[in-house]
Write a protein that binds this DNA or RNA. Structure first.
Length: 853
RNA sequence: GCCUGGGUGGCGGAAUGGCAGACGCAACGGACUUAAAAUCCGUUGACCGCAAGGUCGUGUGGGUUCGACUCCCAUCCCAGGCACCA
């Protein structure tokens, strides 16, 4: 029996054992309850695994191993989100086919992930770039198309000339591409769009039943951005044109003093007077030239042009000027608004700038105004803006509408009713959510199973001819025209109808990276099925995902897109649940330790030396301040899991990542901390391998420690409180290191508790204890409350809330006896000397508080 | 500006309204060793005190309570997200 904790030998041995025995193969169908735990699958980048990846993977792995021991049939798979721009850019630079780069990266990732000893069922591995996978991504697109949810639209898109591709809004940050930081401009192009907006309401509503962090749900709600209000028709004075505006504040109609159309609004030129034509055209051109970013960038200063037209306010017949301005967006609502400067800050700014009257129609609620520091007199005089609550004033007409004196909420309803009765308005709902721009001008993505026929019609590749594979190419440069490199694959592009001989050209766009990740959790269920997307019986058995763990950066997009596709698949009867992921947990980011000098200048870690005085700049000898920062190449604070594993072993790596703090928290990496858990594993190893183990009865103290440990580790593992579970195991080892002989039951129980956390060591110690089978399916220990009970407890006696004495008292003693014992104690008597005891608060088993005076 | 989280020792963190700082790191002292590493034992929130002991202490200011890191109000700071969405 080895006395050294030789982690590299142990880890290698057990990884081989698990692999050759297929220990973690998930059985389809079983009498055990199922449990599906999903990790967000990684994009296999060239940089290899980052310490952030194993954080979530370790957490789910611990839970999976625990659940197996609790008798669950666990599905825990892994795969690769492998389409994407970096491999394509590398191909452009070097001519290496993206599939070669991708496979190489995946091999690295797989090796690294396997070296951490995760209990994945590797037989279910998926790869979004494999034909047998993307065949079904294309199949889903066909279902979307057939359901009328995919359409082509000419839309101004985010065109990045440097990358030669269109980017999604979310891939553009501050007017630059998220990847590479290149400038992005707006360019109209024909694009595939998916009608996610049709599902807005359900995506919003069904959030309610999900066990997700409240913050993530809120982010999705905000992204969907539901608002309710009214559409109101305004006639244009002297023209046979009417314009519909959208407002969430129909109650403020009496305060509308002008109207604004977005510069792109279809009716702008219809209503513009000859005198204003030049100014309006100039403004429209100016607006068109600007990117979305510039529009919002310059949001402090309002701009606009007067059309010369006047609209008639339907509630009181007043004529109000019609302007165009880029603060009104064409894509939201009706692209036109009624402006109420007295009660909307944007309208107020605009009115101030262009000298438009401000009419106050809400008298601010006095209390609200005071707490917001708003002067009511200014609001009433139209000199200040009030967007809060209050009572309506100046809001009545002689056509039966009078909302004076009402609060905002009632007046909205009443106004909508009045408008609807006259057929000039109606209550409506709007969403900020836009349709999903689904094309990319890239090579390395799923090709659309679409042919554009000569006669302008669109034909889909028949389902039995899928997959439509990517053509082999050796030049991956963008075509330059805005089309993807596929536009250069001439042979591949050509299509001739075998029956009619009609010619066609294949779609050159490919799908965005989100496509493959929208449904991978479904393919794990039946990854090798070549006849259908998956066997429905297996889907019914495994779905929904019980726990989904990943980074918060996917809070909105990936999770919203995946929910959307899932709902579509639900509607066409392909899946049996309306939501895919029942419980979601976001692991917090792991930061690297970084250093800055007194001027706040960052010093890369390779120029920092640790001295007794603290971290020092090796060049200037200046003492530096330590602080946690996002890991980055420039700060040289990136930690490579391979290095940690070779020095301390993967069990230590796993344990440290879990011991750092709560899973959801952002935490700084500290390699010294790995040594702490490494020492704990060494002590655990020594405890089992070097103690004299005896099959003997335990003392009450031993039983209490053992059962308290079972209880805490079980409960904390269940609730993902891994850091506190580990500290309890440390307490156990500290306690049992003191005993002369180690009771066999305590040894075996401890090994089982440790195993999900440090699985290699767990198996090794289990073997040392004389077992020949894996402990992966050993029943999880159960604690007995009776061993936790003690005969005597220490009761704290407080006087006025301050601790004065600690007295041992029998458990279960009644309050009167507790008080009596307390009042007999010398320290207590001293503390209350000369005072009267006015009250005694007794908390059985805990404390007594004496109130004196 | 709005929406989420979060502020506890030198550091990571722990605490069903009931002894703040479990567990770990670092530091210091000691044992073992020719020495070092490894290991083991002990000390370690701050301040006052020789000591017994006392005072203060969970971002800040109030409040509720016999009792507040925990609940309420206000406020500051940090991180993430959204941002002219009418």
């Amino acid at each position: 029996m080895s006395t050294e904790y030789d982690f590299s030998a142990i880890e290698k041995q057990w990884q081989n054992y698990w692999e050759s025995n297929k220990t973690f193969k998930a059985e389809d169908f079983s009498s055990k309850p199922k449990y599906y735990v999903l990790d967000m699958f990684p994009y296999p980048s060239g940089a290899g695994l980052h310490v952030g990846h194993p954080e979530g993977y370790t957490a789910t792995d611990i839970l999976c191993r625990y659940k197996r021991m609790r008798g669950f049939n666990v599905l825990h798979p892994m795969g690769w989100d492998a389409f994407g721009l970096p491999a394509e850019q590398y191909a452009v630079e070097t001519g290496t086919h993206p599939s070669i780069t991708t496979d190489k990266n995946i091999d690295t990732f797989r090796r690294q992930i396997k070296s951490l000893g995760f209990s994945y069922d590797w037989d279910r591995e998926v790869n979004t770039t494999h034909q047998k996978y993307y065949k079904w991504t294309q199949w889903i697109f066909i279902q979307l198309y057939n359901k009328g949810l995919a359409y082509i639209d000419e839309v101004p898109v985010n065109w990045c000339p440097a990358l030669g591709t269109v980017l999604a809004n979310e891939e553009v940050i501050d007017g630059k591409s998220e990847r590479g930081n290149h400038p992005v401009i707006r360019k109209p192009m024909k694009q595939w769009m998916l009608k996610i907006t049709e599902y807005a309401e359900r995506l919003l509503l069904d959030l309610e039943e999900l066990n997700w962090p409240e913050g993530i749900k809120e982010m999705q709600r905000n992204w969907i951005g539901k608002s309710s209000g009214a559409e109101v028709d305004f006639k244009i004075d002297g023209k046979d044109v009417s314009i519909t505006v959208y407002t969430t504040r129909p109650d403020t109609l009496f305060g509308a003093t002008y109207m604004v159309l977005s510069p792109e609004h279809a009716k702008v030129m219809d209503i513009t007077t000859p005198a204003q034509r030049a100014a309006v055209e100039a403004y429209r051109e100016h607006a068109a030239r600007m990117s979305d970013f510039e529009r919002t960038e310059l949001n402090t200063e309002k701009t606009g042009a007067f059309t010369g037209a006047y609209a008639v306010n339907p509630v009181d017949g007043r004529k109000i000027p019609v302007w165009i301005s880029d603060y009104v967006l064409a894509s939201y609502g009706t692209g036109a608004i009624m402006a109420v400067p007295a009660h909307d800050t944007r309208d107020f700014e605009f009115a101030q700038k262009f000298d438009i009257p401000v009419i106050c129609i809400i008298e601010p609620d006095a209390k609200d105004a005071a707490s917001d520091g708003v002067n009511t007199a200014d609001v009433l005089a139209g000199k200040a803006c009030w967007t809060g609550n209050g009572k309506m004033i100046n809001s009545a007409n002689d056509a039966g509408l009078n909302i004076n004196g009402l609060e905002v909420k009632e007046s909205k309803a009443k106004t909508i009713e009045w408008l609807a009765a006259r057929g000039i308005g109606k209550g409506t709902t709007n969403y900020k959510l836009r349709d999903w721009l689904f094309s990319r001008q890239r090579y390395w993505g799923e090709p659309f199973p679409v042919i554009h026929m000569e006669d302008g019609s669109i034909r889909l590749v028949p389902e039995n001819e899928l997959p439509l594979t990517l053509p082999e190419m050796d030049d991956f440069k963008p075509s330059g025209s805005g089309e993807s490199p596929l536009a250069k694959a001439e042979k591949w592009l050509e299509y001739v109808d075998p029956v009619t001989g009609m010619k066609g050209r294949r779609e050159t766009n490919t799908m965005p990276q989100w496509a493959g990740s929208c449904w991978y959790y479904l393919r794990y269920i039946d990854p090798d099925n070549s006849d259908r997307i998956f066997d429905p019986a297996k889907e019914k058995y495994w779905m929904p995902v019980d726990l989904y763990v990943g980074g918060a950066e996917h809070a909105v997009l990936h999770l919203l897109y995946a929910r959307f596709w899932h709902k579509v698949l639900f509607d066409i009867g392909v899946v049996s649940t309306k939501e895919p992921f029942m419980r979601l947990v976001n692991q917090g980011m792991i930061l690297g330790m970084s250093y800055k000098n007194a001027h706040g200048i960052l010093v890369p870690n390779n120029l920092v030396e640790h001295t007794p005085e603290g971290p020092v700049d090796t060049r200037t000898r200046e003492v530096l301040e330590e602080f946690p920062a996002k890991m980055s190449k420039s700060l040289k604070n990136v930690v490579n899991p391979d290095d940690v594993i070779s020095e301390y072993g993967s069990d230590s790596m796993r344990l440290y990542e879990m011991f750092m703090g709560p899973l959801e928290a952002v935490k700084p990496w500290n390699t010294k901390g790995v040594e702490g858990v490494y020492r704990f594993l060494k002590r655990s190893h020594r405890l089992i391998t070097e103690s004299t183990i005896e099959d003997r009865a335990m003392t009450p103290e031993e039983l209490r420690t053992l059962h308290a440990t079972i209880k805490k580790v079980s409960e904390d593992t269940e609730s993902l409180g891994f850091n506190t579970a580990i500290s309890q195991m440390m307490v156990f080892v500290n306690e049992f290191s003191k005993v002369a002989t180690l009771p066999l039951e305590a040894a075996e129980t401890f090994v089982k508790l440790l195993a999900p956390y440090a699985p290699h060591l767990g198996e090794e110690l289990w073997e040392c204890l004389g077992h020949s089978q894996t402990l992966a399916y050993e029943p999880w220990p159960v604690f007995d409350e009776k061993y936790l009970a003690v005969a005597e407890v220490e009761i704290l006696v407080q006087v006025l809330g301050k601790p004065k004495a600690r007295i041992m008292m029998p458990t279960g003693i009644d309050e009167a006896a507790m008080e009596k014992m307390a009042l007999e104690n010398a320290d207590v008597l001293k503390a209350i000397e000369g005072k009267t005891v006015r009250k005694m608060i007794c908390v059985p088993g805990r404390l007594i508080n004496l109130v004196i005076g």
